[in-house]
Amino acid sequence: MAQQADVLTEAKLQKKKDRNNTRLTIAIFLLPAILTYLVFILYPIFDTFVISLYRWNGISPTRTFVGLDNYTTLLQESRFWFAFRNNMYVVLLSIFVQIPLGLVMALVLFSKIKGKKILNVLFFLPYLMSTVAVGLLWIFMYDPVNGPVNRLFNLFGMQSVHWLAGGTSSLIAILIVIAWQFAPFYMILFRAAMVGIPEEHYESAEIDGASETQKFFYITLPSIMPTIVSSSILAVVGSLKTFAIFYVMTGGGSGISTDILGTFMYRQAFINFNMGYSSAIAAIMFIVALISVIIIQLIDYRRRNK
């Protein structure tokens, strides 16, 4: 009897030991990643919110607690809303230019033509270049004297434009470059979504005598609608990440007309040393991204539960 009990407790002990072992394993395997993530992402985000409550130049050892003052000042400043508006332009550009353009590229890659492999590489090239390189290249594409863009304008009998001299033309010029660089990204997404459409759908449509246009509107478009919706919201997050292209093409982003949240925040922090104020901008950028993600997840959740 006693012996049996011993065996039992021993088994229990062994089980407990195994469980502790597993726990230890989990911890050891996860530790390096969690630590890195904690130190370089989670803590900085938290700290951004903390710093945003202070007035601080980033150098002096003392900082003054000002509560939500930075936020109230920020929300009343027209420069902030200008930058915010420009971010929204980038979002609109993604939805109404890049996504359709990416869709057309994906459709081309899906049509029955020769040389698709090469086309795929050619279409994708802009996305591979570093944004700094893209920006510098396009500065010369837009050059008032020797730039190909103005050359094209002249060919059609139009006047040369000082594209990057500031104002609306600069904004338009930069938005075109963003479209050039990021349309391939959407092309890839749509291509992936189109691969998932079962071939039979097209076959049966063909038997019913559907035209190419009908096939697109009744089969392709509905199937990739979820991708279109989620990439539209993804564009909000993408626009918040936009920085280098504006920074490079406007020489640091000093003009209001071409300021976006990223360059506005950068200048406040690393040129003017308003760390608290700048952190408030960063915090708002984070909150906007968070809200967009929650919306995506909700839409996704509802679609899955249908």
Partner: peptide, 8 residues
């Protein structure tokens, strides 16, 4: 957005 981590 990386900007949310830049200053810290």
């Amino acid at each position: 957005p990386v900007h949310a981590t830049l200053i810290p």
